[in-house]
Simulated scan of single mutants.
Amino acid sequence: MKDLIRANAGLLFAGVATFILMGAGQALFGPALPVYVRDFALGEGEAGLFVALLWVGCFLGVGFMFFKGALVGPRHTLAVMAAGMGLMAAEAGWILTFAGGMFFGMGYGMATAVFNPRVMRAFGTRGPSMLSLLNATFGVGAIAAPLVFVWLGSDPAWTFGLVALALVAVFALAGPAGRESVAVEGPVKAFRPHWGILAFGALAIGMEASLAGLGPTALIRAGIEETRAAQLLSAFFVVFLLARVVLIFIAHRVEPFVLYTLSIGSAALFALGAAVWTPAICFVAMGASAGVFFPGYYVTASGKMGEDLRVPPTIVAAGLVGAIATPLILAPLVAGMGERGFFWVSAALLGTATALALLSLRRMKV
């Protein structure tokens, strides 16, 4: 294993640094949203649009990867993300600010399709565990960003500006790391979309996006003050990170769809707890479930759909469909459902998905 790590040190550096900043950028959308609602006088639908545009950008980035993925390296993804963060830091009106969110999302989607398959292939049988490690580092940035946001006086301009500068620094150091892993050695399985697992992924990633993007607003609506909501989002990502660290040691030993099913089932229970008991504790606990959503989905889908270069963008794109649609649907829907409506709806969606996943366990085995 040490030899594999040494051989792929450049890939790991670029991937870890990029994922940390991806986590930081995404985690800032939630705490920044109430500030933008106030400063730009936005309605509920426009607020949901801000979160959704991140994922629209991701979808566009992944779409580009589907057709031109072999030409894209880490520096391309970092440049696009830095441009998006810079636009948001400028705060030149809500339209350009929202456009910056979409540009950041484009780089985010491209980076996901650049690094995940490369790490899976580079580490062979340990690929699922190393994939969990890579995605765990996402949580480091996601934990720190809301705390930095509060420390900087809940000022989106300063916080997004710092992330932009960090992305530029990684751009300068990343070089072409990871490009050597683009090609697949040996026979390649045919490209065959598996609509069942793609639908499960769309729902799970849609809920992950909603928890990160709409969660702080839902907590505020439930009576938690704004600064505390940002701190709870940081705690959510602490638990998120811990779950992915645990996956490093077990992901290669457990059937991936079993992990997926356990993750959405536990998330449904925690959402119900937030609705009937305490939103603060149960929202943070949902971080453990959300941390397992993507690894369980991605590894299952990879096993079902083959090794064609179009597979990783397709897997990510399906999740992004959910990530785009879910906040747009939930934001206006839960606005009139009382102070805990977000958690009631989340419990219903996740509970239904859990029942369907249990019925699909045999068919989803890889």
Rank of each mutant, 00 (worst) to 15 (best):
G306Y: 07
W94P: 14
M22L: 10
A212Q: 14
V238S: 14
G84L: 04
A14Q: 05
V184G: 11
A113I: 01
A331M: 07
L131F: 14
G15S: 14
Y108T: 06
H194D: 03
F160T: 04
F98G: 10
F257Y: 08
V148F: 13
R75M: 07
L242P: 06
G303P: 12
P256N: 07
R38P: 02
S129W: 03
G73Y: 03
G319Q: 11
F123Y: 15
G109C: 09
A268P: 05
G287M: 05
G107I: 01
A190I: 00
A169N: 06
G336S: 09
I324D: 01
P31N: 05
F240E: 02
V16K: 05
T77A: 13
L71S: 15
F29V: 12
L131V: 11
A229M: 08
S132Q: 02
F293A: 15
F29M: 08
T125G: 08
T112A: 11
S132G: 05
W55F: 14
V62K: 01
I281Y: 15
L60P: 06
T77C: 13
L71A: 12
L328E: 06
V170P: 05
V366E: 01
T217M: 12
M81G: 07
F67C: 05
A251L: 08
E255R: 09
G223S: 12
G73W: 03
V292R: 07
L147A: 13
A144D: 07
V170Y: 06
H194R: 00
A347I: 01
V299P: 04
T18H: 13
T97H: 14
E225A: 07
I5H: 07
E44D: 10
L333W: 11
P31V: 00
L78C: 07
F138Q: 00
R244H: 09
T227L: 12
E91N: 09
A335Y: 08
T261M: 04
N135F: 06
A17C: 11
R228L: 15
A136Q: 04
V292D: 08
T159A: 14
E185F: 06
V316C: 08
H76P: 00
L242C: 10
V37K: 09
A122W: 01
L350V: 03
A190G: 13
G273W: 03
V170D: 11
P31L: 01
V334K: 07
N116G: 05
V140T: 09
P31R: 02
L78N: 07
G291R: 03
M364P: 02
F191H: 04
F171W: 13
R362D: 08
V37A: 10
R179C: 05
F343M: 05
A355C: 13
R362K: 11
L173P: 04
P187D: 04
G291S: 10
A89R: 04
F270S: 00
P176R: 15
H252C: 01
V292N: 06
G215N: 10
H76A: 14
G45M: 09
G23Q: 03
A83Q: 02
V72T: 10
G296I: 00
L333G: 15
M88K: 02
